[in-house]
Amino acid sequence: MGGAALNPDQPLWQWGPVHLNATILWTWVVMAILVLTSWSVTRRPGTRRRPSKRQIVLEVIVTALRHQIRDVSRQEPGQYLPFIGTLFLFIATAALLSIVPGYVPPTSSLSTTAALSTCVFIAVPLYGIPHLGYRRYFRQYLQPSVFMLPFNVIGELSRTLALAVRLYGNMMSGAMIGAMLLAMAPLFLDVAMKLFGLITGMIQAWIFAILAMVYIASATQVHESRETQP
């Protein structure tokens, strides 16, 4: 896995254009952990008055996400919760599993972070157009003048790229530094770096989710307020 730590997209198994690498493999692991944990808790929910402890933990997480979404978007969090919550839980779980020996975070692959950023890039018009309509949504790229269209498009693309590179750089650097320290320094230093990587990973997950929410909220509110100006 040493090579996988440096480039997790290297194929482990290949059949034509289809191949399996560490990024996809550990992504499935993360997905399995999230889905199985949720299913095991919610398949037999506790009584209404006394939910189980694991259900309470999930309710705390979900409620915290709702509050964060409401604070950022100033809107009801119901429609944004699945997308933003999944982004946060996936990135955070991928970072938390870094304490497992031999684990390679999927978010240390640029393909994964670019895929997540692309999802955000697609989600912005998907949330914005139902709020504003096609004309009002796409007209905001012409604001304040039609000459700003290229700059607005570049802005959209650059922020998506920044989103992907920021997450990739932080997670990849953590994995890279950990692999290098493991080869050069005593074991306890690698443990310290892993713990530090946990904090960094949680912060990056929060940043990614908040920025995604800001982009989506700006597509529904800022444009709307701009349209309402006389």
Partner: peptide, 18 residues
């Protein structure tokens, strides 16, 4: 594959978590 995985994860979490 990661886009598809993310969409699948979103659907599953929406079904079993949120």
């Amino acid at each position: 594959a990661q886009i598809i995985n993310f969409l699948i994860l979103l659907a599953l979490l929406k079904r079993f978590l949120y």
